[in-house]
Structures are given as C-alpha cells and as structure tokens.
C-alpha cells in the first residue's frame, strides 16, 4: 500500500495551492519528481523544474521520458483521472480533478452537495464526456472514447444515487438481466436458464439477503431492499470496479451497518469507489477517503486525517 499512499499523497500535495494547480499537476505527472522518491529521477538527471530554457534536444527527451513515466505510473492503476474538467453552461462541475484508484482498493469519496461527485461518476461511466483531461481504466483504456454499454462491458458497474431497478420485474429477473455474460440481443432472444445461472443468482440472493423476496416485483421492495438489489445486480455483473453512489441513503442504522459489511465483503474481490455523505458509514468502511470540493480534490487520506483538515471542516461547516 505504500505505492498507493505515495501516489495519493503526491496528488494531495499538488492540489494544495488551488490557484495554480494545473501547471503543478502537469509537471509532476509529466516527469518523475525527485521529491516523490521516484527511482528514475536520479538516473536520468531530469530536474523537476527547468530554471533556464532547455536545449531543444533536452525538451524532446523530456517529452519522451514524460510519456514513458506517465505510462508506467498509469499502467499500475485501475482508475486514473488527470486534469479532468467539465462545465455545464459555464458552471464548472468538475474542475481539474485528478484521482487515482489502485487495483483492489476501496475508496470512499465525500464532499458537500455540488462537489461534483455524481458528475465524476458520470464521466467515468461514459454518461458525460469531459471537456478536457484524461480518464483511463486498467491503465490503458481511454474511457472518454467509449459509451456506457462498452464501459460496463469492460467491468465498471455503477449504482445510482436514486435506487434504479427494473420495477416491473421480479427480484430474480432483475439479477438475471444483470448477470455477466453475452450482451448479444439474439442470444438474449434464444436464452435458456441453466444450472450455473441459477446457482449464481442463489449466491447473490443469499449475499444480499433477498432470498425470501425472489418472486416479488422489484417495485414492491422497500427502499433499503431496492438499494441492496441494485448492489446485488452490480455483483451479478461481476465488474472489476464498482462505483456506488450513496448506498445507504434512506436506510436505518442497522441496514447501514449491514451495507458497510456487505461492501467490505465485496471489496475482497473487487475494487470499489463509494460516494457517501454518511460519516458513520464511511467510518465503518475504514478505508482511505477523498474529499471533493467544487470539482477538485480537497484532501485525501484516512478519515481521521481528512476530517481534521481545517479546509474540509470549513467547506462542511462554512466560514
């Protein structure tokens, strides 16, 4: 985990002076920074900031090294966002956002309303195209070039803020439609239920504690059960990365506890990004936290450290 912490620490450090973050970010990510302890830095002798105007060859070499360095760093990540900006009618919902999620990591994202959490999810899942910036999945897949269905097929699952299930279908059918496998229309037309499929559905029903409701229409589930069903559908999809938007909104304390347990279970096999307001829940998850504010990363680290950060306190409580 040192690697991860290193990377995130770096990003946090780079974001501290908010005003000129862009240039800093690009330099740091473009070339190995000696301060970050990159082993390449000494060998190549590439200074982090040229003091005098460099020789043309040096510029060229710098660009090549930058590309290599970036590639190497990016390749190790599961989700990599750099300098992402998206504005709606002049309002910058996401402003030069950079975020890295490692393979197997569970990350909680907090932030006040309008911090850009949902827009970030939209960008990752292909619903919204960023104005600029890079979004890579698995190190080398440029997510900005793909649409929702393709991205889902690559292994990114998403739970919406408002639970979205197929209300006219039974719980079982909801899961069946979500099960990983061929997404061909013709196969779906001639699809037949088989034993492995049934078994998989049983597993998920057990995991989400919906066994007794399997024949019920999803419309008749309670709010919390719908949330669970949606998480179950995500599991059925068997994605590499789960994006979970406010999973415990409207849940009782007991349900919240259960959900935290469920997500921790899930994170054994999958990478998870959870967006949540509920601090008890985030604490229960016990993972690294990223705080977003006005479309950028404000702070990152363990929850205690982040919540102690005066700027975080300020944006949550006001001046």
């Amino acid at each position: 985990m040192t690697m991860v912490e290193e990377a995130s620490r770096q990003i946090r450090v780079l974001h501290e002076p908010q005003g000129y973050a862009p240039s800093l970010t690009s330099i740091s990510l473009a070339g190995p920074d000696p301060a970050a302890g990159d082993p390449d830095a000494g060998e190549n002798g590439w200074p982090p900031r040229p003091v005098v105007s460099p020789h043309p060859w040096a510029t060229e070499r710098a660009a090549r090294l930058a590309a290599e360095g970036k590639g190497r760093r990016r390749r190790d990540t599961l989700l990599y966002l750099d300098g992402v900006t998206k504005s709606f009618d002049g309002f910058k919902a996401i402003n030069n956002l950079s975020l890295v999620v490692e393979r197997g990591e569970m990350r909680a994202i907090i932030g006040p309303n309008g911090a850009g959490k949902t827009t970030m999810m939209d960008i990752i899942t292909g619903k919204t195209r960023p104005d600029k910036g890079e979004v890579f999945f698995g190190g080398d897949v440029d997510l900005t070039q793909h649409d929702e269905a393709e991205i889902a097929g690559m292994g990114i699952g998403r739970k919406f803020q408002k639970p979205t299930v197929f209300e006219s279908h039974t719980v079982e059918d909801n899961l069946r439609l979500a099960l990983s496998g061929s997404r061909s229309i013709l196969r779906a037309l001639f699809h037949r239920k088989d034993a492995p499929e049934r078994q998989r559905i049983e597993e998920i029903l057990a995991l989400t504690r919906l066994e007794a409701k399997r024949k019920m229409l999803a419309a008749d589930l309670s709010h919390g059960q719908k949330q669970w069903l949606e998480i179950g559908m995500l599991l059925a999809q068997d994605p590499e990365l789960l994006l979970v938007d406010e999973p415990v909104a409207g849940m009782t304390d007991a349900e919240t506890e259960e959900t935290a347990r469920l997500l921790r279970d899930i994170s054994q096999k999958h990478s998870v990004v959870v967006v949540e307001h509920d601090m008890h829940f985030v604490r229960a998850l016990g993972v690294k936290v990223t705080c977003l504010h006005e479309g950028s990363v404000l702070a990152e680290g363990p929850l205690d450290q982040v919540s102690a950060d005066p700027r975080v306190v300020e944006v949550y409580l006001g001046r």
């Binding site: 269905a149 889902a152 097929g153 979205t164």
Partner: peptide
Amino acid sequence: DAESRTRFLGW
C-alpha cells in the same frame, strides 16, 4: 422502465 440502467449493465 429504466433505460440508462440497462446501459450501465452493459446492454
């Protein structure tokens, strides 16, 4: 009923 849900499931 939920077109975007199907898209995010990969359909």
